[in-house]
Amino acid sequence: MNMQLLVQLLVNGVIVGALYGVVAMSFVLIYKASQVVNFAQGEFLLIGAWVCWWLLTKYQIPFFAGMAITLVFMLVFGVALQIIVLRPLIGEPIISVIMVTIGLSTIFQGAMKWIFGLNAQPFPPIFKTQSVNILGLQIQTAYLMSVAVSLAMMAGMAWFFKASKYGLAMRATAFNQQIAQSLGISVKNIFAMAWAISAVVSAVAGVVVGVVNSVSPALSTYGIKVFPAVILGGLDSIVGAVLGGLIIGLLENIAHYVDSEFLHWGNLYEIAPFYVLIIILMIKPYGLFGTRNIERV
């Protein structure tokens, strides 16, 4: 048993899992509000990270200013996407909507590769100290920041839904669109807002990943990894998404540990979440916290 490696991988799992949780949360946000399964979630991370990287390296803007501009950009981007592409599709069959998001993800991936290239680009260093010592473990500052940002975003989302007026309106829309409309909630605005928030939160996650590792087209895999997480947690549960993300992140790293120590199959950690996904779909399709759809005729 290699304890050092195990602890390292568990810490890694929590960090990556928290990020999966954040992305899954923003995925579920869109699904809950507008019943759209967004296959372009990973590209939100990609776009956010590249835009921030570009501002920081090209114009030498300080990190927080660059971040703020990125977030404003993503806000506008999310709203524009909803209005231009997804609003005409309201009421269309679910296949069309899924396909549009798949098409969007292809466009964004191609466009990002076209503009920024295929190579991974590191962010300029942001922290003065590279690592801090916590309980005898050397942890990089970037990792700490990653967990802190993830937790902050989760707390922010919880506050938004529990206490704010718009969060309440969004929950009402998710519950029943017609009733929400009759109570004076503009469902259109809620949809646009859901996409905007989702884009912003994903972009933050994207920048965090960029700071921890580097920005590259591989970032969009987060959008795929989000599916095991949300299916595990339940497609329409925010809490479930966060927990699912954490579990998938831990699972990946535990699979990596088992693989490297005992099995030596190679690349097990990449594929393990998908086996879990199939198993959950077989035995408990509505996940840990999802609402069970009961059909009455």
Binding site: P88, S96, I107, G110
Partner: peptide
Amino acid sequence: FLREIAIGLVIVLFLI
């Protein structure tokens, strides 16, 4: 990459 963009664009435009 342009091909990739074209494929996505064609999907989206046809669906709309």
